[in-house]
Design a binder for these strands. Structure first.
Length: 428
RNA sequence: GGAGGGGUCGCAUAGUGGUCUAGUGCGCCCGCCUGCUAAGCGGGUUCCGGGGUAACUCGGUCGAGGGUUCGAAUCCCUCCCCCUCCGCCA
């Protein structure tokens, strides 16, 4: 979240950024609550100071009669303190709730625009392959290589679930392994993290209270299923002051991700592009504020590296202000080309969240041994999302008979250069 | 799931209603003393917030949140975490 001090001192900037995001946030109400809070706080605190002094005097007083008089006096002061504290608490609660729902500020470099149509393609790498046959979508290829079973997935769990088996289960695992190997070789620390987290952790990462609808949770215990490993890694240092000399910290984690995705049925439902459960390799960085712009570049370059190593045509898209996520002040998406479906698939989203999550999670670091603590900046990026990378590999590497060539870098993992066609191609 | 024991300043501990402004030791920082180092001596050492240009000052903070009281580390309630044993289990 933004600090109330920041909002107070930069009210115009914050109002502007809320407009740029199309965020419906009442900054005036927040400032008004802050004003009331500080007024009340001063009253309460001066009364408390008075009570503290008097109580000390009572403890020291010898004469019982004098004690009684002062105790009676203080009883009245105590009542008044209680009355004001009740009022103060109500104001602080409302202020806190409202602050939790204010999104991050918008980086000056972010293109302005109301929605994704204003996003800007900043870089394109690789030429889409020229096919001398009509490329098939991945769900057809999945059937041909006997690696994808959407019907049985739906029978087990409902719509938007699927089963990967045989060569495609193995392909996905090889991709995960490859990505982890590449990122750890680049200095990222691999982490295995809980897949269910407490409500406090979801609040710290920014998922709650605003995005409750998109989360799965355990009905009986305080467990929320992670929608991304980012949520776990934000909380790695929650309520800590990181000692001097330990930044930057770069993590990479492979986890499943669970999302309710309560969107209109009928869109994006074909195949495995969007499910309630999917695998993702996630990168996450804690760094000093001065470094976060460079770290964002690093994360984008790491995501690009994976797409390039897999020889997939890809492009980098700068999200415009209206398309930014709640936590992010600047985001680049990485998209890969899927020729079977004929569309660009978002496989990574790299965001600089500044100190927005650090503040919610109460994370600070000490720049130097005697220095005052500061909030670190935190960044996250997929590196990459699995089902869509699987789709891109399948559709880009497909052969006329529906078999799928294996990208060079994956051949050591799969110990083959071809996923063969075992069923005849569907007619048409 | 059952029974018991715990959570106090970076670490270790003391503290069971008012001289707690949380003591002591270790560690760390500054100073003094000192051929050098060590020892010794003195001082300092949580974090958050309010007010103030500032020096400074006030409030809060003993796992978290409520409550009792003029006054809570200390008493009461709810919750969280850790340890030991039993049960269950990959």
């Amino acid at each position: 979240m933004l600090s109330i001090q920041f909002i107070r001192e930069n009210a115009e900037r914050v109002r502007r950024d809320m407009l740029l995001r199309n965020a419906d946030v009442n900054i005036d109400r927040i400032l008004q609550l802050d004003d009331q809070r500080r007024q009340l706080l001063q009253q309460v605190e001066s009364l408390r100071a008075k009570r503290n002094a008097a109580s000390k005097a009572i403890g020291a007083a010898k004469d019982p009669a004098e004690r009684e008089v002062r105790i009676a006096e203080m009883r009245l002061v105590g009542d008044e303190i209680q009355r004001l504290e009740t009022k103060l608490r109500a104001i602080e609660d409302e202020l806190q709730q409202r602050l939790y729902e204010v999104p991050n500020i918008v980086d000056e470099a972010v293109p302005r625009g109301p929605d994704e149509t204003s996003n800007v393609v900043v870089e394109s790498i690789g030429e889409p392959r020229a096919f001398d046959f009509v490329p098939r979508p991945h769900w057809e290829l999945g059937t041909i290589v006997d690696g994808l079973d959407i019907e049985r997935g739906a029978r087990m769990a409902g719509s938007r679930f699927y089963v990967l088996k045989g060569p495609l289960a193995r392909l996905q695992r090889a991709l995960i392994q490859f990505m982890l190997d590449e990122h750890t070789a680049a200095g990222f620390t691999e982490a295995y993290v809980p897949y269910m987290l407490s409500e406090a952790s979801l609040l710290a990462s920014g998922q709650l209270p605003k995005f409750r609808d998109n989360l799965y949770r355990d009905a009986e215990e305080d467990f929320y299923f992670i929608p991304t490993a980012e949520v776990a890694l934000v909380n790695y240092h929650r309520d800590e002051i990181i000692p001097p000399g330990q930044l930057p910290q770069r993590f990479v984690a492979h986890t499943p991700c669970f999302r309710r995705e309560k969107m209109s049925a009928g869109r994006d439902v074909r195949g495995i592009k969007r499910g309630h459960q999917f695998e993702k390799v996630e990168m996450f960085v804690y760094c000093e504020p001065e470094q976060s712009a460079a770290e964002l570049d690093l994360l984008v370059s790491r995501a690009k590296h994976i797409a390039a190593a897999l020889e997939l045509p890809h492009r980098v898209v700068a999200l415009c202000s209206g398309d930014l996520g709640f936590n992010a002040s600047r985001t680049f998406d990485l998209e890969v080309w899927a020729p079977g479906q004929g569309e660009w698939l978002e496989v990574s989203s790299a965001s600089n969240c500044l100190d927005f999550q650090a503040r919610r999670a109460n994370i600070r670091y000490r720049p130097a041994p005697e220095a005052a603590p500061r909030h670190p900046h935190m960044l996250n990026a997929s590196g990459l999302a699995l089902p869509r990378t699987v789709i891109a590999v399948m559709e880009n590497y497909q052969q006329p008979d529906g078999s799928i060539a294996v990208p060079h870098v994956l051949q050591p993992y799969l110990r083959t250069d071809l996923i063969p066609a075992v069923h005849p191609a569907p007619a048409g």
